[in-house]
Each structure stands twice: as C-alpha cells, then as structure tokens.
Write a protein that binds this DNA or RNA. Structure first.
Lengths: 268, 268
DNA sequence: CGCATACTTGAGCGTTCTCAATACAGGTGG
DNA sequence: CCACCTGTATTGAGAACGCTCAAGTATGCG
C-alpha cells in the first residue's frame, strides 16, 4: 500500500496506440465511459465539424442567445457564466476538453448562461439538426447524450452543495479533486498532477469567493501540504488526505460509465 | 397599469372545467407548458401508479440507492438533499407537486442525493421499464422528459449562481420569486400569494444559511415591506420590486414551454 | 525597459455563524 | 381546562469567515 495512492481509472477499453493526440476528447471520453460501439463513435466524431479557435476571454456563446449547434470543447478551458447586475460573476460550470458547452439549447429556446473561453480554446461544433438525425437512427447515441445531461446535472448539484454548505477551503479542495478525476477521463493528468491554466480570478468565480480570499485560501491549502500550485501546474501531494478533507467522493462524476443496460435492453 | 402588478401565465391551453382538483399535477403542468397531445398526456397519466402517502421527514428515496421507478410529487413539498460528514445539510433542489424526484436514476446507477418529504406528501410512481416503453412509442414524450431534465438543470445552475454570488437577502427573495412562478404553473398560487409549508430550518437548508440567520434575513425582508409570511402563507406585496431587488427573471424556469419545434419537425 | 496582467499582503469592516436563552404554538394526557 | 411537552420561531452576544479597498510585488510580453 503506497503512502501516496494515486487515482486510477479503468482503461481497459482504451487502446492508446490507435488514437492520435488530436482525437476528439469527447469521443475519447465516451470510448472510456460509455458502451457506444466503435461505429457510433465514428459517426459522432464525423458529425463534429471544423474545430475553430476562440481566443481567451471571448464568448463561445453569448448570454441569452439561441444557437443551432452544440459547442464542444476540444482543447482549452471554458466556463458557463452568469453576470449579475452589479458585475458579480459566477460560473455554474467549468468546461474542459470533451465537455458540451450548451447541450440544453437542443430543446430550450435560449440559454440564459453565456459560455466564455477561459484560455484560448478550440471548439468544434455539432449542428442540432445533424445530431437529431443521428439520435433518430442511433438510439444508443441518444441515450449517451441524455446520460451526459444527467452527469452535468449531478455536477451542478454537487456545486450547489459545496457553495451552500462547505467552507472556502473545503470548496476549493473539492474542486481540485473533481478536476483531477474529470481531467483523468480525457487523459490530461499526469499521476496526481495536472495543468490548471486558470487565473485566480477565474477560479474565484467558480468557487464563489473574492479573488483576494481565494488567494488566501490557496495559500492555506498549500501550507497544509496537501497540494502545490506552481506555474499553472497543480499537484496533489496526498490524494487520500485531500479527498478526506474536502469530503470528496467521485460518485457524482459517474466515471464508471453508463448503466450496464439489462433494463434498457429488456424494455426495447 | 396597476401599481402592484401580478404574475400571469398564459392559460390558454388549460381547460379548468375539465380537470378535477385531484388531477396529476405533472400532467397539468405538461398540458400548460408542453405541446403534448391529449393522447400522450393520458398515456402518461395512466402510467403513473398508485399515489401513496409519505409522512413528513421521511425519505422518499434514500441517499446513494438505486431505484426502478421515477417518483413524482403529487401533493406536498419535498427536497433533494445531501448530508455532509459533520451533519450540515444542503438541498440542491426543492420539489413541489408536478416535479420528478429522481429522473436521473433512469440512466444513472445510483442517485447520490436523497429525497426527503418536507411535509406529508403523496407520491406516485412511474416504473422505468414502463416509461422506456412509452418513450419508444411516443417520441414526443421522450422529448418532454428530456426537456424537463434541462429545466431542472437550469434551476440548479441558477441556485449555484445565487449561492455563489448573491447575498442572503437577495437569495431568499429570489427563491420566493422562483417559487411563485413554479407554483403558478400547477395552480397553487392565489394571486401573488402562496402556501409555504416549510419550516425556517428547511428553508435555511435550501438557501445555504444557518437557521438563525435565515430568521433574521426573513425579518429584514418583511421589514422592507416586500413580502409577508404569516402562518405558512407567503404574500408578495410588490412583485416588481421583489423581482428587481433579487435580480430575478423567470427565463430560466422556461415557463413559456417547449421550443415551438420547427427544427425538430424538420429533422424527423 | 516599460507596460499590463496576475498575484500577494495588510487592515478594517460587514456578513454570517455558533452558542445559548427565551418565547410561542399545537397537541396530549390528567 | 390546565400542565406539560415537543417542535418552531425569535433574540442577544461574541466570534469566525469572507469581503473591500488599497498598496505593493512578481511575471510576462512587446
């Protein structure tokens, strides 16, 4: 039993050698977590058109607008955001490669949240019309997108709990745990360490703290020896202790994948 | 222009005379907000089995369990909850008649949130297997359930924003606005007033405040003349002012109903 | 080298918390 | 009808937490 255990996701379904580093991370994630066939994955990948670059700080999707595409983060970090009257800003979600920015626009007229690129991002686009076609002919894909919606919902609920009931330090530690697990599913971690290219300002909008207090909280966390954050690389020195401190459990991220599906099959 | 304007939802599709007071509130809500046919509504209503009574304070769905049914609130108030190690509790969602308690269990193995009855509730049950059958034969119903998921998601995001960026008083005022609109869709309001059967303890778990501070915040709100809360009836004396104070906009509740659907039709 | 952005630190204030006591309400049994 | 009991609401006081304002220090880029 190593003193510093490290997070480990099952990678049984992943064939690293067959994937170029430029592979769509959403596809990578679904290959790992869903039971979609290679066929389905390829159809989906083909439907994602033209990754285009969005510079940091600019909107991927403006607040209150409609859209006819789903935006998918290919590389870089983004966030859903909401501006309050007096200029306060809150991120209800942080988006990393493989995340859908605005799937809710598929059925909702307007997204009342904007999506902003926190770093320079490449974003690919999946037209609603095309996705509807695909979902019609491939029910498994439809289920996967619904599943993704549920997972997002679970993350959102967990953030609500954190903001409502956890202290600043716990909240931040919890976020670092969440990010390790989520980044691991798209192979953006290196052991217990990952690149965290956000500014403290941006982090503070995610955890609902002022930038000043975020800075101090970060120092407390560093001081406790649980993590370090130098340059923009976050390292978790003691995963078990950080998990324990922040009361983190990866359950809500549903990293174990889709329900195995006897019931679904039985029903069809 | 009345000084105290009152909230008004379009009720054009509702035929009040044809509905008994015992009608399934989920069906009532969908009749109002979705474009489901009367046929679809009836199929759905028929699939909701045996409303059963759950006493206040007991679990409708235990934390971390799986389930083979969707639980639907018929009457009474419930909440999704999450317990933290040290006993703190947070509600990521408040559930009123017509709400689905645990639709995510349809695709997720376990719900990591519990559902508790806040008052005595009647809960009806929709078996997953049956719902899957129905969704297979009635795509419109499938879309409506996905739409409901998105709306929940939007509410959850809005709560995140509130907890992260709004003051105690704004947060509480915002919740009162939200509840007015949501209750109006199931006809549980009387003008700008509604029964709010929750204890202050329960309210405090929804807005992430201590019970003591919730009490004081409530008094501030009462003192400002915007609302009153006597017995368990909440009255909003000045809807516009309360909306303005809490920066509330009903957009995120999507009370205007499903997207009109040209795109959906075009794709099929 | 200089400017802009990000990070850090200090100090004081305001909000929200905890602990603890008190008041009030509804329901039960004597 | 009253005494009591439990749960809920209210109040006070002090402490902790997180905020704002403001200054100062890195760091990176042109």
């Amino acid at each position: 039993m190593p003193v510093r255990s490290s997070i480990q996701l099952s990678r049984s379904r992943v064939r690293l050698t067959t994937r170029s580093p430029m592979t769509n991370p959403l596809i990578a994630r679904l290959r790992l977590l869903s039971s979609l066939s290679e066929d389905d994955l390829q159809i989906l990948e083909a439907a994602c058109t033209g990754p285009q670059t969005v510079p940091a700080h600019s909107d991927i999707q403006a607040e209150g607008r409609g859209t006819e595409h789903i935006h998918i983060v290919q590389s870089g970090w983004a966030a859903r955001y909401r501006l309050l009257r007096d200029g306060r800003r809150q991120f209800p979600a942080l988006l990393i490669p493989g995340d859908l920015c605005d799937i809710d626009a598929l059925l909702l007229n307007r997204t009342h949240f904007g999506v902003v690129a926190l770093t320079s991002c490449t974003i690919s686009v999946l037209p609603h019309a095309r996705l509807r076609e695909i979902m019609e002919s491939r029910p498994a894909i439809r289920d996967v997108f619904w599943w993704l919606t549920f997972v997002e919902n679970a993350i959102s609920a967990e953030w609500t709990v954190g903001l409502g009931a956890r202290s600043a330090e716990e909240r931040l530690a919890h976020l670092f745990c969440e990010l390790l697990v989520r980044l691991a599913t798209v192979e953006m971690t290196d052991g217990n360490s990952y690149a965290l290219p956000l500014t403290q300002d941006q982090l503070s909008d995610a955890v609902g703290l002022s930038a000043v207090h975020l800075n101090r909280t970060l120092q407390d966390l560093r001081g406790s020896g649980l993590i370090s954050l130098d340059g923009h690389r976050l390292t978790i020195h003691n995963w078990e202790a950080l998990k324990d401190f922040s009361d983190f459990s990866a359950d809500y991220l549903h990293v174990e994948g889709l329900r195995s599906g006897e019931n679904r099959r039985a029903a069809h």
